[in-house]
Simulated scan of single mutants.
Amino acid sequence: MNKTILNTLFFISLGFISGQAQHNSERYSAFRPGDIWKDTDGTHINAHGGGLYFEDGIYYWYGEHKGDDSKAHVGINVYSSRDLYNWIKEGVALSVENDSNSEITAGSVMERPKVIYNKKTGKYVLWFHLELKDQGYSAARTGVAVSDTPTGPFKYIRSYRPNAGKWPLNFKEEWKTIPKGGDPEEWWTPQWHKALNEGMFVRRDFKEGQMSRDMSVYVDQDGTAYHIHSSEENQTLHISELTEDYLGFTGKWVRVQPGGQNEAPAVFEKDGTYYMITSGLTGWDPNPARSFKASSLMGPWKALGNPARGVDADKTFHSQSTFILPVQGKENAFIFMADRWKPENHIDGRYIWLPIEWEDDEPVIMWEDEWRLSFFDKQ
């Protein structure tokens, strides 16, 4: 009997050790762009179109919970990590609501979440692109929620069409009036492009507020926060100053690259210069990235071209930008974060994280099958 018990305990222990070894073998020590990336529970990380926030040695990754389609059925997930390789699922930071009258009811669209911290209010503020249920992408709104902790739960406050009743700072006075004969109705003609550049859609949406689709937020060194979003039927980027509590818009805003068709903006700063990486406008299909720089967030912004280099650079390595992550503890170390979308099965979208390099003070992104944070030590 004792021998049987000992044998049983031996095999239980052996199984436990084997299980521990298997678990430990799944810990990551490098980035492998495009591979399935699992959390510490062994589940594919579900945080698409995401953004990161860092506090007290911990990174928090917020992203869209995707299922088979692009609609929100769960909400916005949050993960945490101390090393950027291994991620713990913390839960749902902002859940869809059961109330069918809620703007964030199940079946709405909640995309590109970004979290910033307001030192004055002590609140964590979450902004995201919101489309209302059963309205396709016609609502073009941005939603905001707050929490007392970085992991939430966040409380939804409201959504906006930004800057209602406010003209952009870089808008000519003569553009505020509809020209004689009205604006052209047929798209893509020379007359239409001229009208677009001269604020046709800005005038159209002046009272209701401007469209806001792909978006990001950025806090400058002086604590001022900015909301960067694709607007004017996705033809033009807008950069808007947020109120001191980061929950609304001051009415100070600018247009960037009118008619340039920039989506997926991601902003960062290096040595006093601001950089922005965006994508073109091709739906779920990849395209060449674009990059820009400016001495002020409110511009003017200078186009630099495609930062990607090498094979598949013309498709940004089959991905689309979502965030630029400054690596803590390393000088001028930035990670280009992007999504490789899978519209036929959204949950299987993959993450493309690549180090940003520099050529003549311009950002450069090159493919790496596998890389580590020590990459930045050689720069």
Rank of each mutant, 00 (worst) to 15 (best):
L9S: 10
F10I: 12
F10T: 15
F11T: 12
I12M: 12
L14N: 12
L14P: 01
L14A: 15
G15A: 15
F16H: 09
F16L: 13
S18I: 05
Q22T: 08
S25R: 06
A30R: 03
R32Y: 14
G34T: 05
D41M: 11
G51C: 03
F54T: 00
E55I: 01
Y59F: 06
W61N: 10
Y62E: 02
K66F: 08
D68G: 15
S70D: 07
S70C: 06
K71M: 14
V74C: 07
G75H: 00
I76W: 03
N77M: 14
V78I: 06
Y79A: 06
S80A: 04
S81A: 06
S81I: 03
L84T: 14
E90G: 09
G91L: 11
V96R: 02
N98L: 11
N101Y: 12
S102K: 03
A106G: 12
M110A: 06
K119L: 01
Y124A: 06
V125W: 04
V125S: 06
Q135Y: 11
A139K: 04
A140K: 13
A140V: 13
R141C: 15
T142P: 04
V144K: 04
S147M: 10
D148W: 10
T149N: 10
P153V: 03
F154A: 03
Y160W: 12
Y160I: 04
P162L: 07
P162N: 08
G165W: 06
K166M: 13
W167Q: 07
W167D: 06
N170Q: 12
D183L: 12
E185W: 10
W187H: 14
W188D: 15
T189L: 13
A195R: 04
L196I: 08
M200C: 02
V202K: 03
R204M: 13
F206N: 11
V217R: 06
Y218E: 08
V219N: 08
T224Y: 00
A225C: 12
H227M: 08
I228D: 00
H229Y: 13
H229A: 11
S230W: 02
S231C: 09
E233T: 13
E233A: 13
Q235P: 01
Q235C: 14
L237D: 01
H238T: 05
L242S: 01
Y246S: 01
F249W: 05
R255Y: 01
V256W: 02
V256C: 05
V256H: 05
Q261L: 11
N262A: 10
V267Q: 09
V267E: 10
F268E: 06
D271M: 01
G272C: 09
G280K: 11
L281K: 09
G283D: 10
P286F: 09
P286S: 14
F292T: 00
S295F: 07
S296T: 07
W301D: 00
L304R: 03
N306L: 11
N306E: 07
P307L: 02
R309Q: 12
V311I: 07
D314H: 13
T316P: 00
F317A: 05
S319Q: 07
T322L: 09
I324W: 02
I324R: 02
V327Y: 01
E331Y: 05
N332H: 12
A333G: 00
E344Y: 14
H346S: 15
D348F: 07
D348M: 14
R350L: 13
I352E: 02
P355V: 01
P355Q: 09
W358F: 12
W358S: 05
D360A: 14
E370K: 15
W371K: 08
L373M: 07
F376G: 10
K378C: 04
